[in-house]
Amino acid sequence: MTDFSQAFGVAFQLLIRGDDALYEIIFLSLRVSLTATLIACVIGLPLGAALATLSFRGKWLLTVVTNTLMGMPPVVLGLILYMALSNAGPFGWLQLLYTPGAMILAQTLLIIPIVTALTRQIIDDNWLDYREQLHSLCVPRFAAIQTLLWDTRASLLTVAMAGFARAISEVGAVIVVGGNINHLTRVMTTAIALETSKGELALALALGMVLLLISLMINASVLSAKGHTSR
């Protein structure tokens, strides 16, 4: 109980005091996770819509694989990326390992299946209603996908939020490919892991509360925006 009561005080002090190290970690966390979410949405939204509306060989298999990859353990993905990005790996020449770039890549790959699978389901449900109408209006398939993405934007915002939540709360992949290097690749989750291992439970818990507070603010903003777009 002491840790819990201390944690609130420490979290409050950290935020009020304007601790530079903390804000550096917060900004890096946001930069990495928001960038990963943006890239995953740019790839996953049209991919999910295409999966829902197009007919092609292997569609069923691709859907199953996408759904399965939603459950990819982050640490496994981190390990695969580590092997690929290390000097001995095929992408070692990129020199990405232990950089924020590698962390963005890891989180992007982690949430693309989530964005794609959830988008596919939402578009598929709406496609049942829209298909005949859009077909009747002779809307080309690409334009039909654009129409569906726009018309389901409120639901897709939730998908983006689910992706962001997965990214910002992830620790396994970023700690492997980022290395948790102070002032370079340390983010909220890796900092929490570090403080926990050092026995600084109150500080770790405080960082967790700050992380939750950030998520709360972002979700509130998105929910507010969603209210304007839902009709």
Binding site: E132, Q133, S136, C138, V139, A143, T147
Partner: peptide
Amino acid sequence: MQQSMVFQKPVLLRRSVAANIDYVLKL
């Protein structure tokens, strides 16, 4: 392209009344 159909349950786009017409005119 020279035919149009209206269904028993209208499927309107999730946008304004005017934008529903604009969508088709632009198309």
